[in-house]
Amino acid sequence: MTEIELLKEWVSANPLAMSVIKFVIVLLVVLFAIQLIRRYLKKKIANTVIRYKAQKGIEILGYTLLVILAIIYFSGSIKDFTIIIGLFTAGMAFTLQELILSIAGSVYIFLVKVYQPGDRIEINGIKGDVIDVDSIYTTMMEIGEWVSSDNYTGRIVKLSNAFVFKGPIYNYSQDFPFIWDEFNLPIRYGSDIDLAKSIIIKIASETLSEYTANSKHDWEKVVNKYYIEDAQIDPTLAISLTDNWIQFNLRYIVDFKKRRYIKHLLNDKIRVEIEKTNGKIILASATVELIKIPDINVNLDSNNKV
């Protein structure tokens, strides 16, 4: 027998194996087409956000097509499609609950727009910038932890999409990419308080003018979209009296990615201006004041002998 005759005989004797081989060929063709389209989009689309979404969309469509083809191909008839889907769903729901919940979470994230790449979020106690969202995981560049303020730790965290159903999600950038921040300045009693107030408000207004102007427009959109009261956007200064000093509390709005830098800038500028007052304004520190030393009477009797 020739090789062709042997192959025909093997195919007739193993129809299931031949079906699998045909499906593998279809699978490879579809996967190759997905990668080809992804490369084409990468070259043709300049905008990073649009390119990322287009590539993810092609992946989802391609994998969905493969699942449908597999079900139809091995069922042998389109009329069995709903039956197979039901059996498949029942089995998978029991054995792969977490995986199914993750996939459902990815659909929920995409449809509801809970967050997207580029957003800064906190979920399940982990805070960071979202750098990728796929069908199973959300990938984040972590911030905080042992690093002070909002700096990157260098760790990349993969978090199951199922967590969108299990707790709160804090989004620092969606709808309103600004946050309120504040810090305290202790001023010694006896300082020129009015001068101190004018210096702090002037520096804050000048330094934060760009953020204040940009945030007002975005905040108007938030007020119109949600049931929320209007808020004070301009820098505000509150004063409280303590046992040791007069405490100045400066509250202001800033870009969520520049919180640490702006706080440093404000502190440094205020320090320089206070030093120029030549002692009219003095920053306070914790001190201990002795009010009175009790009198001590010492009697020396010259008649006492050792």
Score class of each variant (00 low, 15 high):
Ile203Tyr: 01
Ile262Val: 03
Val11Ile: 14
Asn297Ser: 14
Glu142His: 08
Ser240Trp: 07
Asp255Lys: 01
Tyr172His: 07
Thr139Asn: 01
Asp255Ile: 08
Ile270Ala: 01
Leu31Pro: 00
Asp150Met: 07
Lys257His: 04
Val164His: 06
Ile71His: 06
Asn184Gln: 05
Phe74Tyr: 09
Ser12Tyr: 09
Ser75Arg: 03
Ile60Leu: 12
Tyr73Thr: 08
Glu289Val: 13
Thr212His: 04
Lys79Tyr: 11
Thr138His: 03
Tyr108Phe: 14
Thr64Arg: 08
Ala286Cys: 14
Tyr137Leu: 04
Lys221Arg: 09
Met141Trp: 00
Ile126Lys: 05
Ser285Phe: 14
Ile78Thr: 10
Phe110Glu: 05
Pro168Trp: 04
Pro186Arg: 00
Lys113Cys: 10
Tyr211Pro: 11
Ile156Arg: 07
Asn244Val: 05
Thr153His: 08
Gly86Glu: 09
Glu210Gly: 07
Ala90Ser: 06
Ser191Tyr: 04
Tyr170Gly: 08
Asn47Arg: 10
Leu36Glu: 00
Ala93Ile: 12
Ile85Tyr: 09
Lys53Arg: 14
Asp134Ser: 08
Ile68Tyr: 01
Arg188Cys: 06
Ala46Gln: 12
Glu142Val: 08
Ala54Val: 09
Phe183Asn: 06
Ser240Cys: 03
Leu28Gln: 07
Gly154Lys: 05
Tyr172Gly: 00
Val26Glu: 08
Val112Asp: 13
Ile282Gly: 02
Ile21Asp: 02
Pro15His: 05
Lys43Gln: 09
Ile37Glu: 10
Val133Met: 07
Glu220Leu: 13
Lys280Gly: 01
Phe256Met: 11
Tyr189Gln: 07
Ile109Glu: 06
Arg260Asp: 12
Ile25Asp: 12
Met1Asp: 02
Leu7Arg: 13
Asn47Phe: 10
Tyr152Trp: 04
Tyr152Arg: 08
Ala238Gly: 14
Ile270Cys: 02
Thr138Leu: 06
Glu182Arg: 13
Arg251Val: 09
Pro117Thr: 10
Ile293Val: 15
Lys197Arg: 12
Arg251Thr: 11
Val130Ser: 10
His217Gln: 15
Glu122Lys: 02
Leu36Phe: 10
Ile270Leu: 01
Glu5Tyr: 12
Ile78Tyr: 01
Pro15Gln: 11
Ile83Thr: 15
Asn47His: 00
Val29Phe: 12
Ile131Ser: 11
Met1Leu: 08
Met18Tyr: 15
Asp295Arg: 14
Thr82Ala: 14
Thr139Pro: 01
Ile228Val: 13
Ser160Pro: 09
Arg259Phe: 04
Asp181Tyr: 00
Val20Tyr: 12
Tyr73Val: 08
Leu266Ala: 03
Pro177Leu: 01
Asp150Val: 00
Thr212Ala: 02
Phe94Pro: 04
Glu3Asp: 14
Val130Phe: 01
Lys225Ala: 07
Asn303Met: 14
Ile296Cys: 03
Glu98Lys: 13
Leu61Met: 11
